[in-house]
Design a protein around this nucleic acid. Structure first.
Lengths: 407, 407
DNA sequence: TTCCTTTAGTCCATAATCTGTACATAATCC
DNA sequence: GGATTATGTACAGATTATGGACTAAAGGAA
């Protein structure tokens, strides 16, 4: 709750943000349309747009608004030419980085396969610093100005400290600024949820479920991630499914993770599963169709078994789906999301999970809510978290473009 | 997300709110202190305070700031003289109303015992309208200006429609404006949470658990109630405790309500429980110590049995506590509250619930969070919801005092 | 007591920003 | 080609905050 008064400069800063947000939300607009939408006068909008152009965040896109009659207006749209953001990710078996511009176009992407289980934080962070420096240099060689960075980690984060990342074996690691830029860290699921918002063409209210080795969730309400009091909200993986079920790594019993975590699901393969993933995708692929992260070998194997109708695999998947349905029922009652998006390894498994999950939701929620929230598969692919990290930086630029004018 | 630009008048409106919120948050201040805290100049603060005095929301409280040296400043504090809010409540066995002034002082309170189970909405609402008119008239006779009203109902609310209040037997009831004032409806648990915030001297982040016939919860984050996408968040009573447990009224199975709802707890009394509550408390009791609602007979009886060590009662209470511990574990993982407050009938039962609940929380959360959120008993008593209703109106006045200047 | 120092609050000229009307511009319609 | 309509800019005017000067009121020192 900001308790600072509004002065002339903050009024203008706010109005710059309002105009930019309008363009960002609903696409290119003429100055006249912006005036209508924001309630400001044409004069003021013209002046604000001039500043935004100078800051390099918007440009006159030549395209004219084909009005019925009268002088056509020139549309003003986001500019991807100058300002860009750096997304970083540490995950169990890879490091990743990407550069995204203001128009949500992925300009560069890099992955380094690695085995980060039970690793030394300092070494990994050094590796990531090198990766960040390389990709930033390349982006700047291409004329982009990288304005900030964010890092996604598979664990709980408070401030700049990684509290606990059990699968990395890290605990209370203070992450230093990896780049000479504004820098922040956040939980993988939270950032993946933002990735879904920014790159999965979602409306602004949904619960993103990130199925990985751990299971996280990010609740997006009105375009922002809900973080709770200490930033630890959304730990779906440890919602209780069976009060006296099997012990979980977290110290509890019968947590969702025990029934639907990646290790359990891949356990259905026996001990025959192949280990590491293959090569890296080092190409600049602006379309974003190909996965940034190489397809996770053993999940692919599970899918193959499921397609072949392997009964053990099918049964495990069904059980996971049921457990997910139970946990999501609790989550819907508590969080009231507008939509549920299944991501991470749940995306390739969606065909087999959807039935049991939505059955459970429907049976338990129908009477209290009419229709339970829809269940859909993520549209982002396995890169959600890195992309979301970059997206979170861009989100902050759009929320306050004035910071670019001072420099 | 407001997409409207800031104009001069909204800048001033915002600054009025900033000054008023500062006084509200941290007590009386001199103009000079306000200038320091808000970052505005003394000149501007003086002018804003003059407007706030004219609006009747603050006054110079004579008290002077005993500075070390120099001219002493006159403290400006909230004024309870003019502006007040009306809180209303429909519950299973009573109607209630109260008038609260800006300083959080309860000026008037009224209760009408009633049996509202499976009742006719129109008749009940008419009765409430009469009650509201009476108490408003009395408040205005006392020189107060009642500026808005809010109604707490035991059910889910969307906009001005009461979607479902199973214990009243109401469904999709459109509630008309009961008074000639700005008027809103909200869920009993949400408003009770606000009541706890306003009248229970809480910090601004906690989860309020409302144990009634149904079990609700209101999450307060940064001083505001978290409502979710459709305003249906916080339905703690239907969090799944045992996936294939006994059927619940909601269509699900093994919901918390089945194990820890009032009906289950009182079921421990056999069928001997006394029915209605006694007299009404019609006095104007500014201290607020006495309960607005007559003590619920049968809960009192349960407490008596527990004190006597009745094994059936103790066992039921323990089972409820365990279930509550499980449900709250899930809630903590999803919502990350800073504190858990037990209210409603859980307040008198706190002595017997605290053990099993915090045991369950501790065992399940310790490893992931160090210390789980503290568990405390509500400081508000059974009136939390009506008081919170009035509080929510006052909250909106404080968030935008400019609306009072136009009239 | 008297003066000096310190802090509070007000006055007034100035600055920043938005508004509103007027106007130049550029398209369509007849 | 002229009328109509809409866009975008220019300039004067309005609103609000700022900043330094000034008055006010207390304590402390001489």
């Amino acid at each position: 709750m900001s308790s600072r008064g509004v002065r002339h400069d903050s009024m203008r800063a706010r109005n710059l943000a309002v105009v930019l947000a309008t363009i960002h939300r609903s696409g290119p607009h003429t100055r006249a349309e912006l005036a209508e939408r924001t309630g400001l006068t044409k004069t003021t909008v013209s002046s604000l747009v001039a500043d935004l152009i100078e800051a390099g965040v918007v440009s006159e896109s030549g395209a004219v608004q084909k009005g019925e009659r009268g002088r056509p207006g020139v549309a003003v749209s986001l500019s991807g030419r100058r300002v860009a953001a750096l997304g970083l990710e540490i995950n169990i078996d890879y490091l990743a980085a990407c550069v995204v511009d203001l128009t949500r176009t992925v300009r560069l992407r890099r992955t380094r396969p690695a085995d980060n289980r039970n690793s030394d934080p300092a070494a990994i962070l050094d590796g990531l610093r090198v990766l960040a420096k390389e990709i930033t240099a390349e982006a700047e060689a291409g004329g982009l100005r990288v304005i900030g960075a964010a890092l996604a980690v598979p664990g709980t984060v408070e401030g700049e400290v990684l509290r606990s990342a059990p699968h990395l074996g890290w605990r209370d690691v203070r992450v230093p600024d990896l780049v000479d830029l504004p820098f922040e860290i956040d939980n993988e699921a939270n950032l993946a949820a933002l990735g879904e918002l920014w790159f999965g063409s979602r409306e602004s209210d949904f619960l993103y479920v990130s199925g990985e080795i751990g299971i996280g969730a990010g609740l997006v309400v009105d375009g922002a991630v809900f973080r709770g009091t200490y930033g630890l909200a959304g730990e779906l993986g440890h919602v209780v499914v069976v009060p006296d079920g099997p012990a979980c790594r977290c110290g509890g019993r019968g947590c969702l993770e025990v029934y639907a975590g990646q290790d359990t699901l891949l356990g259905a393969l026996g001990s025959a599963g192949s280990a590491g993933s293959g090569g890296s995708a080092d190409a600049a692929d602006p379309a974003g169709a190909a996965g940034l992260v190489g397809s996770t070998g053993s999940v692919g194997e599970l899918v193959a078994r499921l397609e072949a109708g392997d009964p053990e695999a099918v049964r495990t998947c069904e059980r996971a789906g049921h457990a997910l349905g139970v946990a999501l029922t609790s989550a819907v009652h508590l969080l009231d999301p507008g939509l549920i998006v299944l991501g991470g390894i749940y995306a390739p498994l969606y065909r087999w999970l959807e039935g049991p999950v939505s059955e459970g939701l429907g049976a338990r929620l129908a009477q209290m809510r009419g229709t339970p929230p829809a269940l859909v598969v993520s549209g982002t692919g396995p890169d959600a978290a890195v992309l979301g990290a970059a997206g979170s930086v861009i989100q902050r630029i759009i929320a306050d473009p004035a910071q670019l004018l001072g420099l």
